[in-house]
Amino acid sequence: MNWFKKLNTAFKKSSSKITDNISQIFTKKKLDEESLEAFEDMLIESDMGITTAQKISQNLKKTRFGKDVSEEEIHNFLASEIESIVKKREKHLVLDFNNTPQVILMVGVNGSGKTTSIAKLCHTWKDQGKSILIAAADTFRAAAIDQLSTWADRLSIPIYKKSPGADAAGIVYEAYQQAKKDNTDILIIDTAGRLQNNSSLMAELEKISRVLKKLDPNLPHQSLLVLDGTTGQNALNQVQEFQKTVPITGLIMTKLDGTAKGGILVQIADQIDIPIYAIGVGESLEDLNQFDAKSYAESLVSTNN
């Protein structure tokens, strides 16, 4: 099921890395308090958060303090630290096609990239010859249904939609019946963006999940939370709060093609037991990569762009 491109070119396009300043930090040969602090700052600048940054720099201190360190050594150390943190969350999105339709619920805050991620996912599934139905359950945002329809047309995938303002849970219910009737392999549901502290919108999401559970207690098979890679510490809240409403089965982090380093992903991996499935690295349909801990850590740290 290795249907994402390996994490590579697109991510490396990103113009800056955690370690851009590394040569300035380790001008002296010996690792002292000052360079250690600068090292920690460098990690914080990637949105890794203070706790995780301190943890990594303490590990560095334990093994290397007062010793001669080369830039390369620091590189390798950091890459392996990051890899060991994110490795335990590296999972493949596995769908069970003996049990169709596989229902996938896409959730996230506004503007995180849910709709585009759906198009990218559908593109990969379509290449594998899977039949798909898209449910347009974002009935709130203006033209959200049109946006999704355009993608569906481009990909020649059927879409179940109603007029704006329709009840989202109702659409989900009917789309499922449709997918069942047509023997569709995958039903992917686009939901409206919602901030995790908006209790009424979170209640609406809970309703969607409840409606699905009534159809089959195993539904949805996957609930994917889409996170914006430029988000700071709030991404941690997002994971925790969405998790309370619909059990999130995995994460997709988008917009890692800018200068944001997405270090928050390391922090989330460090603090929350939740699989990371994929990262978005651009606007074209191919720009969704399966999450690979090793190449993620290396691209985050490497300087040879």
Partner: peptide
């Protein structure tokens, strides 16, 4: 700009 933006806010705003 999104008020939830992280450390990269300086880079994008500057650019």
């Amino acid at each position: 700009a999104d008020s939830m933006t992280g450390q990269d806010a300086v880079n994008s705003a500057k650019a």
